[in-house]
Every structure is written in structure tokens, then in C-alpha cells.
Amino acid sequence: MTAKELREALALQVLSEPDPDRTVTGGYAGDLLSWVMGRAQSGDAWVTIMTNRNILAVAALADTACVIVAEDSVVEADVTALAVEKGLNLYRSSLTGFDLCCRIGSLLGV
């Protein structure tokens, strides 16, 4: 499934979607950046409540398919702008990280 299809299925808010056709192959949840860096797989949808700009470097280098900010955690405008600039899909949801992961899991059939 693509990032855009996942976003539509979960009714996520789009903060940045420069790469809608990126394939989502799995998921990872976490807020400690070097855990995510070490454990997330390329192509994962990354669920987090962290919203500072360092998440974008992690998403770019770990090569995640999209970042989903849970529980409507506040994302500053400069972070959103940077996500567009870096070509990174950044979404937001009022759901908890747990609920997002459950739904992503059933959508991906894992």
C-alpha cells in the first residue's frame, strides 16, 4: 500500500506529502531517536509523538515511508516546511500511537 492510501484509510491530516506513492511495507513506533534509527526498517510508517525537526533527519536516514504524529501532538510550521523541502511524508492524527499501530497492522495484514 502507498503512503497516500494509508493516509486516506486512516483519515490522517496531511502536513506534508511530497512522496505519496512511496510504498509502506511495515510500521515502527517509538520516540527515542536512536532507537528508531537503529530499529525502524526502510519503508516503515513511523508513529511518534516527537515533533522537533530532528525527527526529519531520522526519517530521511532510516528511510521510513512516512512519519505519523500521534495524539495531535503539535508540529511547528518550520518543521512542516522542512518536511516538504526534504521530500518527506508527514501526517498527523488524533488517535493514540497504540490505535494507529493496530489499524496500520490490520491494513498491512501483519
Binding site: L32, L33, S34, M37, G38, N52, N54
Partner: peptide, 16 residues
């Protein structure tokens, strides 16, 4: 507070 400090950076460097 920014998400650093898990103590996983050096282990990641070794692993990768």
C-alpha cells in the same frame, strides 16, 4: 526532551 539520550547511538554505529 528532544528524543536523544537513549544510549543507543554508539551501539547503532557498531551494528551498522
Amino acid at each position: 526532551a528532544l528524543g536523544f539520550g537513549a544510549g543507543m547511538g554508539l551501539p547503532n554505529m557498531k551494528r551498522y
